[in-house]
Design a protein around this nucleic acid. Structure first.
Length: 634
RNA sequence: GCCGACGUAGCUCAGCUGGUAGAGCACUUCACUCGUAAUGAAGGGGUCAGCGGUUCAAAUCCGCUCGUCGGCUCCA
C-alpha cells in the first residue's frame, strides 16, 4: 500500500503499517520526534494502522496547530491527574483540546472554584517536572467497562459503552504515572512536554450536552509551548476585553441595560444616531430595489398565533397578556403580520413579487442565562422583509437579495462573506417536487459564488441560505438569512389571481440582512473597537477652541458644519487643551478641529484625525466636503 | 432554566478575622486662558442590589429573591 505525504509524494509501506512505521520509513530522526499522525483532518495515534491512499502528515513538536492540539490534549490529562490527586473520588467526563486551549469535565463532591487554581497549577507543574511517559494500552469493550466501573468512573463506563454501540471492539487507554484514562490519543511523549499551563475559568456543563443529564464542572485552561507565547495569549484576551461591545457601548454612550428590563436594551441618544444611520442606509437600498415598507402591530390576538402555528411551536419564547378578556401575544416574528397585510386586499399576479419590508421590533423570552449584551437580547429589531412571489420568481429575487447583502456588508468593511445552503430536513412540509424546485432555485441564485451546503439543515417549511461574515479579529458571525417558506401561505390561505384567472398560492421569501440591528451594532462595535466609520459616528467632528476668546469662532464653525449636515459639537470647557484633545480621542470622534488666534485670523480650522497627528489647516469654505473626503480616504 | 462566581458613588475598585463607608476618574464651583492624549483647588454624591435572619453591633456571617458575568443549551 502507499500513503500520500504533505508534499504530494507517495510513500510505499507494507500493508498494516502504522504511523510509527511511516515516520520511521521517512527517517530515524522523524521517528524519534514524531508525536502523532494527522490523517486528513483527523489526529491519530502513531500506533494505529494506516489505510491505502490516505493523506498523512507526521506531527512533531514543530507542527504548529497540530502540535498544540496534541500538547493540549496531554495537558488535559495532566490536569485531570492533578485534580484526582487533590480531590480524590472525582469522576471524570470528557477532556478535549479546543480552540485556544482545552477543558476537562469533572464531577466533584465539593465545588471547585478559581481559588483552587493555584494548587491545581502547582500540582500540574509537579507532574510535568516528573516527565512521566504517556503509555498506551488497549482493552476490549467489556474489560474497559469493568475496569472503569471498578474505579468508580460512571461517565467513562458510559463512554466505553457508547463506543461499543458505535461498533468498536477495543478501546485505547493512556496512562501517565497512576492516572489512567480512556482516550483515543494521541499524546506527547511525557508529561514534561505539555507546555506552560494556565487555568482560566470554571463553568457548568451537562454530561454529553443534554440538560437531562447531570451537570459537571468544566475547568477551562490553555497551554502554550513557551511562557512568552502564553503571556502573549493572555494579553490578547485582555485586549479583546477592551473592545467588548458592552464596555465600548457604555463608554461611548451608545446603549445601556437597566434592571427594570433584563435583556431589553435602552438606546441612548448617540446609539440612536447609529440605529437611524443604519436604517436609513438600508432604506436607500430598499427603495432602489422596489420594496414597500410596512409596520405591523407589536401585539396581536392569540387567535392569530394559533393560526400561524407559533402558539404550538414557539409559546415558550413568547410574551402574553390579556386585555378585555381577549388574549394577546407580543410578536416574536413579523411574518404573520406581513401575511395579514398581503391578505388585506385581493392580490393579482401583476403585483408579484410583492416585497414588504419592516423594521420589526420583536420580543422573545430567551432564558436568563443566555443574555449577553446586544448579542443576545429579549427585544430586538429585525431588518425584515417578506417577498411574496411565484416559485419561478424565486431565483432572481434571491439573487438580488444576495447581491444587496454583500453590497451592504461592504459598507462596514465586512468583505469576507460566506454563504451556506441548507436543504430539506427529515421532517418537512410541502411536496418533494416543491423542495427540489426551491433548492434548485436557490442554487441558481447563488450562481458562481462559493458556498457551503448544510444537508438537512433547512427549516421544516423550506430551504434557506445563511450568510456569515468574518470580522477583523477573525471571528465569524451569522448575520443574514434568506429562507423560503411554503407553509405560512398555506396556514394563512394566501392567494393571488393568476393571468388565467385562477387562484394561486404564492411562496414567501423571508430575508434579513443584519439579522438584528441590535446584534449587528454590537458586532460593529467590537469589530471597530468603537472607531465607527465617519458616516456612522454619532459625533463626527468636535471643535476645540484654544481659549475662551475663541469660543464664538468655534460656535461659528459648528454652525457651518451642522448646516452642511455634519454632526458636530464644541468643547469649550475650561480644561486644558491637552485634556480636551484627550477626551476627543477617547470619545472616538473622527475629527477634532482646533481653533485659536491663527485660525480665526485665516478663517480656517486645524484638523486632527482620530488616532492621528495634526493634518494641517482647512479653510472654512467647503470644510464639510473636506472632512467627507478625508474620511473617504481612510 | 441549570452549574459556578460576583453585586460597595455614574465608571474602575479599596474596605483584614463583624464595631454603622473610602480612593481615582466622572460631575459641580472657583482660579487658570492654555497650540494637539490628563492644570490646580474646593465641593456634592452611597438606605454597601433587595428582603429576611444571627448578633449588643452586619457592607462584612447565614437564607431567599433580583441582577450581572463565565459556561451548558438555543439561536438572530
Amino acid at each position: 500500500m502507499h500513503v500520500i505525504l504533505p508534499d504530494g509524494t507517495n510513500l510505499e509501506l507494507p500493508d498494516g503499517a502504522t504511523g510509527h512505521d511511516a515516520a520511521a520509513a521517512i527517517g530515524p530522526g522523524l521517528a524519534k520526534a514524531a508525536l502523532a499522525v494527522r490523517v486528513g483532518d483527523e489526529m491519530r495515534d502513531l500506533a494505529r494502522p494506516l489505510a491505502d491512499g490516505e493523506q498523512i502528515a507526521i506531527v512533531t513538536g514543530k507542527s504548529g496547530d497540530d502540535h498544540l492540539y496534541v500538547m493540549r490534549h496531554s495537558a488535559a490529562h495532566v490536569m485531570a491527574e492533578a485534580v484526582m490527586s487533590l480531590f480524590p473520588g472525582t469522576r471524570f467526563g470528557f477532556g478535549p483540546p479546543i480552540e485556544d486551549g482545552f477543558y476537562y469535565d469533572f464531577e466533584l463532591d465539593a465545588p471547585i472554584t478559581e481559588d483552587d487554581f493555584p494548587a491545581i497549577e502547582a500540582e500540574i507543574n509537579r507532574i510535568a517536572k516528573a516527565k512521566a511517559p504517556f503509555e498506551r494500552s488497549v482493552m476490549s469493550i467489556p474489560d474497559a467497562a469493568a475496569f472503569f466501573a471498578e474505579r468508580g468512573q460512571p461517565y467513562k463506563v458510559d463512554q466505553v459503552e457508547e463506543l461499543g454501540r458505535q461498533g468498536e471492539a477495543d478501546v485505547s487507554l493512556y496512562q501517565e504515572r497512576d492516572f489512567i484514562d480512556l482516550c483515543r490519543g494521541p499524546h506527547v511523549h511525557h508529561t514534561g512536554n505539555i507546555g506552560k499551563v494556565k487555568l482560566l475559568s470554571v463553568a457548568g456543563a451537562y454530561w454529553r450536552g443534554s440538560e437531562k443529564n447531570p451537570m459537571l464542572t468544566r475547568v477551562y485552561a490553555t497551554s502554550f509551548p513557551s511562557q512568552t507565547e502564553l503571556d502573549e495569549y493572555l494579553e490578547r484576551i485582555e485586549a479583546a476585553k477592551a473592545r467588548d461591545h458592552r464596555r465600548v457601548g457604555r463608554d461611548l454612550g451608545i446603549f445601556y441595560f437597566d434592571e427594570a428590563g433584563p435583556g431589553f436594551p435602552f438606546f441612548l441618544p448617540k446609539g440612536m444616531v447609529v440605529v437611524n444611520e443604519i436604517q436609513s442606509a438600508l432604506r436607500t437600498e430598499l427603495e432602489a430595489m422596489g420594496y414597500d415598507e410596512i409596520r405591523t402591530p407589536t401585539m396581536l390576538s392569540d387567535e392569530l398565533w394559533h393560526q400561524s402555528g407559533h402558539y404550538d411551536n414557539y409559546a415558550d419564547n413568547m410574551y402574553f397578556t390579556e386585555v378585555d378578556g381577549q388574549g394577546f401575544a407580543v410578536k416574536p416574528m413579523n411574518c404573520p403580520g406581513a401575511c395579514l397585510v398581503f391578505r388585506s386586499t385581493r392580490r393579482s399576479y401583476r403585483e408579484l413579487p410583492l416585497r414588504l419590508a419592516e423594521f420589526g421590533h420583536v420580543h422573545r423570552h430567551e432564558l436568563s442565562g443566555v443574555l449577553h449584551g446586544l448579542f443576545r437580547v429579549r427585544a430586538f429589531t429585525q431588518d425584515d422583509a417578506h417577498v411574496f412571489c411565484r416559485i419561478d420568481q424565486v431565483q432572481s429575487e434571491v439573487r438580488s437579495i444576495l447581491d444587496l447583502t454583500e453590497r451592504f456588508y461592504a459598507r462596514f468593511g465586512f468583505e469576507d462573506v460566506r454563504m451556506y445552503l441548507s436543504t430539506r430536513p427529515e421532517k418537512a412540509t410541502g411536496t418533494q417536487e416543491m423542495w427540489d424546485r426551491a433548492e434548485e432555485a436557490l442554487r441558481l441564485a447563488l450562481g458562481d459564488r462559493e458556498y457551503g451546503i448544510k444537508e438537512g439543515d433547512g427549516a421544516f417549511y423550506g430551504p434557506k441560505i445563511d450568510i456569515q461574515v468574518t470580522d477583523t479579529m477573525g471571528r465569524s458571525w451569522q448575520l443574514g438569512t434568506c429562507q423560503l417558506d411554503f407553509y405560512m401561505p398555506e396556514r394563512f390561505g394566501l392567494t393571488y389571481t393568476s393571468a388565467e384567472d385562477t387562484e394561486e398560492r404564492p411562496v414567501i421569501i423571508h430575508r434579513a440582512i443584519t439579522g438584528s440591528l441590535e446584534r449587528f451594532i454590537g458586532i460593529v462595535l467590537e469589530d471597530t473597537g468603537g472607531d465607527l466609520p465617519f458616516w456612522l459616528a454619532p459625533e463626527q467632528a468636535r471643535v476645540i477652541p484654544v481659549s475662551d476668546r475663541h469660543a464664538p469662532y468655534a460656535d461659528e464653525v459648528r454652525a457651518i458644519l451642522r448646516g452642511d449636515g455634519i454632526r458636530c459639537e464644541v468643547d469649550a470647557r475650561s480644561e486644558s487643551m491637552g485634556k480636551r484633545i484627550r477626551d476627543g480621542e477617547l470619545g472616538k470622534v473622527p475629527f477634532l478641529l482646533v481653533v485659536g488666534d491663527r485660525e480665526v485670523e485665516t478663517r480656517t480650522a486645524s484638523l486632527r484625525a482620530r488616532h492621528g497627528d495634526v493634518e494641517g489647516d482647512l479653510p472654512l469654505d467647503g470644510l464639510a466636503h473636506a472632512l467627507r473626503s478625508a474620511a473617504a480616504g481612510k
